[in-house]
Amino acid sequence: MHPSPKDDLVHAQPFSPAERAAVYRAIETRRDVRDQFLPEPLPEDLLERLLGAAHLAPSVGFMQPWNFIVIRDPAVRAQAHRAFERANEEAAVMFAGERQSLYRSLKLEGIRKAPVSICVTCDPDRGGAVVLGRTHNPRMDVYSTVCAVQNLWLAARAEGVGVGWVSIFHDADIRALLGIPERVEIVAWLCLGFVDQLYREPELALKGWRQRLPLEELVYAERWGKPR
């Protein structure tokens, strides 16, 4: 006898006020950490909780396209940092004048300072040739993987762990360093470590790089450009 469909359902009760506040606090105080990492290693059980949170992310067609490469070896992280430095110098010269000076003043030391890094990848073949929900938008697998990154990031905030997303590198350098197959897409290099302080606002806003846009300017009603 097959179980009743009702047996697969649970009540969708709203969270208690305290639980709801904790969720919003994690969202509002999450920061991209670049230089505030403490050298203390992350316990294995804590890292497993963070990876478990990432693995609970939604994914199109339930394809779960992500993989997580955990990197603790200082020698490997040092090679990754050298790849970052090469790309970072290339990036710096793309800005001019005061913008370049401000860019060079930003401390981007997560790869060396954080005790562990996680390279998050997306396997486009995980769900087979035809994936439910990806039939008309082939990038849905990557979007799903980014959801896993956000899950990990919010769980890390709740655990007092800082996360920094490094995106300044040549794909080929990291692919060669970690032995990632050509068909697999590199989505994120994340630096993780305990922190005892976080910026009260996003660091780039506090340092004058860019300010948060007003939400009311970004929400439309019914069609593009129509104010709500």
Rank of each mutant, 00 (worst) to 15 (best):
F68Y: 06
R99C: 08
V93S: 00
M94D: 08
Q64Y: 05
S105T: 06
D73P: 03
P65A: 03
L51I: 14
R77A: 00
R86K: 01
L42N: 11
Q79G: 07
L50K: 06
V93T: 02
Q36R: 03
A75C: 06
L56C: 11
L42S: 03
A57F: 06
F62K: 14
A83W: 06
L50C: 14
L56A: 13
Q79D: 05
E90G: 04
A54C: 12
R82V: 11
A91D: 00
L42M: 04
A54P: 10
P39K: 15
E89D: 08
A78Q: 07
A83I: 07
L38R: 04
P65C: 06
Q36W: 03
A53N: 13
V60R: 08
E90I: 01
A91F: 00
A78E: 07
F62S: 12
F84V: 09
A57N: 12
R72L: 02
S59R: 04
R82E: 15
F95K: 04
A78Y: 10
I69S: 01
P74Y: 03
D73I: 00
F95H: 11
M94Q: 13
V70P: 02
G52D: 11
E85C: 12
L56D: 07
A92M: 03
L56G: 10
H55F: 13
N67T: 13
A54Q: 13
E98I: 01
L50P: 12
F62M: 14
D45K: 10
P74D: 04
P41T: 13
F37S: 05
E89Y: 12
E98C: 00
A57L: 11
S59W: 05
M94V: 08
Q64W: 10
L102H: 09
F95C: 11
H81Y: 05
A75V: 03
N88H: 06
V70D: 05
W66N: 06
